[in-house]
Design a protein around this nucleic acid. Sequence first.
DNA 1: TTTTAAATGATACAGTTGTATTATTTAAAA
DNA 2: TTTTAAATAATACAACTGTATCATTTAAAA
Lengths: 211, 211
Amino acid sequence: MVSCPLFCYNRYMPKIVDHEKRKKQIAEATWTIIVKKGIEGATVRAIAAEAGVSLGSLRHYFSSQEELLLYAMDLVKERVSIRINRLLQSEDSPEQISIRILLELIPYDAESQTEMSVWFHFVMNSLPHAREEEDGIREGIERIMTGLFEGGLLKKEVDVNLEIERLYALVDGLALHVMLHPKRLSKEKIKKVIVHHMNTLFHQPVEEANI
Amino acid sequence: MVSCPLFCYNRYMPKIVDHEKRKKQIAEATWTIIVKKGIEGATVRAIAAEAGVSLGSLRHYFSSQEELLLYAMDLVKERVSIRINRLLQSEDSPEQISIRILLELIPYDAESQTEMSVWFHFVMNSLPHAREEEDGIREGIERIMTGLFEGGLLKKEVDVNLEIERLYALVDGLALHVMLHPKRLSKEKIKKVIVHHMNTLFHQPVEEANI
DNA sequence: TTTTAAATGATACAGTTGTATTATTTAAAA
DNA sequence: TTTTAAATAATACAACTGTATCATTTAAAA
């Protein structure tokens, strides 16, 4: 057992807190503030107070506000990516799985609603030119549709590229509406819409109860 | 010819500029700033500079920033409402007209893209509790679908309420995607998607060329 | 012309912002 | 314990914010 491992560049290691964990904690406080007050309310002081750290402490982890906001947004992307990829790795039967994945893309729990709200704020303000970036949703939908088509599960006459665009718009539109009016649009209604939409494409329709 | 009409409550009328026109000019400058820099960049000084008026002059028309922002948003609503109502009053044949109306809801010209971008900014920041308000789009789509159904132009098996929700999400999703990636999503692609979508509902499909 | 009040411009001020500086506290290693 | 540097806290500062005040300019009516 050596006294100082490779990544320990100093002989003395005083007061070590998990650097990444602290940064993530501050980033999540940033989300909370953004959801509550919007980007304009996401001041370093408000974030520090929400995270329960002092201004100097926050500044110790993020040397500028822009760096903090970029980190907070990248963390959203990371979380969403993980969620999507986990779903795509699922190994169930194609039709039901595809619908379940689509339903998971709609932000229903508080956590994913926060993520989506923050994401929208960033995209709208195009802070780090997020407008140009991809959010991964389109790629996921593309994979789903292509997979279904290549598996021969879609009606032969469907135009895959067209249906990708249509489904992508439908999912983002539903997600947007849920975010803006969560009470008006119930989870059951969303489910009905998506199941019905996919059933118009499937060669062999699935029962809504089987989802 | 009386020397002082009814709406002239003072005997003297010095330097009259069109009050409403000036307010709208300033409100439009507000839009420009919001599109360029987001709500956070919509400071009274930036708006005054964009409108080409002094700070004191701006304040002469709007006694607070909040009043200005509310006015700017109400003006967006007014403009959008006028656009939608004008479309709904059209008296052509049902199927093509409905598709043309839907296509008009997608912001393609710079003007309507500005309006939509500003609208989104306001809605996201829920400044005047805009989240709860209706934007008129849903009502318009509801009228379109109901009209088509009652005219017997839709397939008998369609669930109207379900299709309203589906079409509403599709249109808003397309609008969102156009706003975020105007280059990726061409007007022709939008047209194809909407025509195809409506043709799955129409008893008698329409040719894309006839739109 | 003179008179009038709307319209405008200039400046000021208190509060908040991001950031910088500096000192203090904390805990891990010797 | 002592030593060390990371972690934290306190304070300061210049820039910018919304708003207020007040003098000036403008053009319509007399």
